[in-house]
Design a protein around this nucleic acid. Structure first.
Lengths: 143, 143
DNA sequence: GGCGAATTTGAAAATGATTTTCATTTTTAT
DNA sequence: ATAAAAATGAAAATCATTTTCAAATTCGCC
């Protein structure tokens, strides 16, 4: 009810609880049901629909990521570490686990310059996402 | 029944059909239902269960990859590294006029190599679209 | 401090993708 | 060819996720 200890502007107790859950478990990699069970286990009152809705919001706002698990239990959710949005780098997004790697090095300038000079095209870093496989997943996918 | 035209060792007509589908559509990025509809549309006889089972096998064997779409329609399947040249270039898409420029030059290899070596990430050219402004639009847009 | 509007919640029902069941068909090995 | 093993398809079952809608909560404002 009161959000005295809360800095972020979550509107409701449930939304704050979810935010706190991820902040207190920064490495958590969980399904919606995992989270539901966690709260139910603690005796908290929360509905699954609310969890799904809140997770959607957090994915939308870029706080957490959603991806397909290796097993087949449903979507998994995990905190996005950096979280600080910046336009001076590319995003490399793993198509397997959803991890976003931030590419922020001088080579990028070279890339932009090449595309500008040789292809007459001005890259928009903010909108561009490079898809592929991160190191982990690359190692796990047989080829 | 006869697999005269088939080189790969798929056991059944349905499995061969699925393999052929991906080989003939190397850039296809589809849901199980897309594939089902495709075959039904052609008048072929195939069940959804078989499609799911075959897709699982192909993911397992590393022929195709499975991932969560950005929209929310279910899992998507796509050939891994089509092997065909179509995966060998980037697409530069203008966010203003929609023009797609194909970037197909030796610099791309350099780009991939850099990302692989410095960022431990294997770029998937087929799925990546670089957004920005084409020459025309760049000249016309005030910034 | 409280009232009404707007938003959020939760339980249950609905949805929809995927999996399982099982009788039948096809393939494989002999 | 023939029997055993594996694969198929239609339908039913499963299960994660979404929707519905009435009740509860929060927000804006006086």
């Amino acid at each position: 009810m009161q959000n005295s200890e809360c800095k972020k502007n979550y509107r409701t107790r449930q939304q704050e609880a979810l935010g706190a859950y991820f902040r207190c478990n920064p490495e958590a990699c969980v399904t919606a049901d995992d989270i539901y069970m966690y709260f139910i286990g603690r005796g908290d009152k929360i509905g699954k629909a609310t969890i799904y809705r809140s997770l959607d919001r957090m994915v939308e706002s870029g706080e957490i990521k959603k991806f397909l698990s290796d097993g087949g239990e449903g979507a998994m959710y995990q905190l996005i570490d950096g979280g600080n949005g910046c336009d001076r780098h590319f995003h490399l997004k793993c198509i397997r686990c959803g991890t976003v790697v931030h590419m922020d090095c001088e080579f990028m300038d070279e890339f932009e310059r090449h595309i500008m000079e040789h292809h007459n095209f001005r890259v928009d870093n903010g909108r561009t996402i490079i898809y592929g496989l991160c190191g982990n997943c690359s190692a796990n996918v047989a080829e």
